[in-house]
Simulated assay, not measured.
Amino acid sequence: MLYFLQQVMNGLHSGALYALLAFGYALTNGVLKRTNLAYGAVFAFCGQTAILVAVFGWYVLFLTLPATIALGTAAALLYAVLVSEVLSRKVFAPLAKSSPNTIVTATLGVSIVLMELVRIGADTKDFWLPPMLAAPVVFAAADGFRVTLTVIQLVNCALIASLIGVAALLLQRSSYGRQWRAVCDDSAAAELCGVDADRVFRGAVLGGSMAAAVAGILAALYFGNISFGTGLIFGLKVLFVTAVGGYRSPLQAAGGAMIFGIAEALWSGYFAIEWRDAAMFAGLVTLLVLRPNERDETERA
């Protein structure tokens, strides 16, 4: 029983990262309504940027560890804002009404550009952050087996839960949240009612990019390093999880992503880890095939 509980606890941290990514992806996709392959790249790009700037602060500026982490975090968030502006104004806006495949191709190109920018910035080297807040917190123990999470895992989970809670509350209670739902339903009708659809669109892209950036920074601080392969896998998983849960509710997408993270940890604990991603993707595809489409749900309503 304690072993099962440990796997569930392990899934809470990865599930929290998936949840934040899914929330941001649903926020953007609600207004874009196109597959965004650059989302996982933004996640990895911001995580790697935080590491590179932190390394620069440590070895060149001779900052303390908290100061260099703060510098890397600030740089990653600033780059996230820049990337969101480029995506919303130069990629999404001109191509939003074109074929869905156009957005897929363009965002794939953006992913390659971001990957090459970080590779050039790192001079094709691999940098690692030192372990931080790695002390275990014991939740239960019996017969020499302890159920634990590290301090950084608990901090990450608490921070992500707070961010998602605040963002969900703002979407539910604020005027921007009402405008976002109106644009998601029908942007042309929303504009006729006086809603600035372009502003809502840019705000949604910015919110999604910031969610990906924060998730990338937290993942980098926890793992010590993050690669573009990791970003691609995370992005694809979030894309499928959000497609299964639907794009109308970022909070619902986040909840589904949390469940997915726990299921993934349980597979890792009980079955061959080499087959984990294949099994999880197969499960997501099966749910996506079995899930009724939005038109059927609307007709039933």
Rank of each mutant, 00 (worst) to 15 (best):
M1Y: 10
F4D: 08
L5F: 12
Q7M: 10
Q7A: 11
V8C: 00
M9A: 11
N10F: 06
L12V: 08
L12I: 09
H13L: 14
H13E: 07
H13G: 03
G15I: 04
A16G: 08
A22F: 02
F23M: 06
G24P: 11
Y25D: 04
T28A: 13
V31F: 07
A41K: 01
F43D: 03
L52D: 01
V53G: 02
A54G: 13
P66A: 04
P66Q: 09
T68G: 10
I69G: 04
G72M: 02
A75T: 05
L78E: 08
L78Y: 07
A80N: 07
L82Y: 04
V83P: 01
V83H: 05
S88M: 05
F92P: 00
F92S: 04
A93I: 00
A93D: 07
A93G: 00
A96D: 03
K97W: 08
S98W: 09
S99H: 14
N101P: 00
T102L: 11
A106G: 06
A106F: 10
L114W: 03
L117G: 00
L117W: 02
G121L: 14
A122I: 04
T124D: 14
D126G: 04
W128K: 13
L129S: 05
P130G: 06
P131W: 08
P131V: 10
A134R: 07
P136K: 11
V138T: 15
F139D: 08
A140P: 06
A141N: 14
G144M: 10
F145R: 11
F145T: 08
R146F: 15
V147G: 01
V147A: 03
L149A: 09
V151G: 12
V155L: 15
N156H: 07
A161G: 12
A167I: 04
A168Q: 09
L170N: 05
L171I: 09
R173Q: 12
R173I: 09
Y176A: 05
R178T: 03
Q179C: 14
Q179W: 09
W180P: 01
E191Y: 00
L192A: 06
G194W: 00
D198W: 06
G203D: 00
V205Q: 02
G207A: 14
G208E: 05
S209D: 00
M210N: 00
G216I: 03
L218F: 12
A219K: 02
A220L: 08
Y222L: 11
G224H: 13
T230K: 12
G231M: 08
G231P: 01
G231N: 03
G235K: 02
L236E: 01
F240D: 01
V244A: 14
G245I: 08
R248Q: 14
I259D: 07
G261A: 04
I262Q: 12
I262L: 15
I262H: 13
I262C: 10
A263R: 10
G269K: 09
G269C: 10
F271L: 15
F271Q: 14
F271D: 12
I273L: 13
E274V: 09
A279Y: 11
G283T: 05
G283H: 06
V285T: 12
V289S: 14
V289Q: 11
N293I: 09
D296H: 15
E297K: 15
E299G: 13
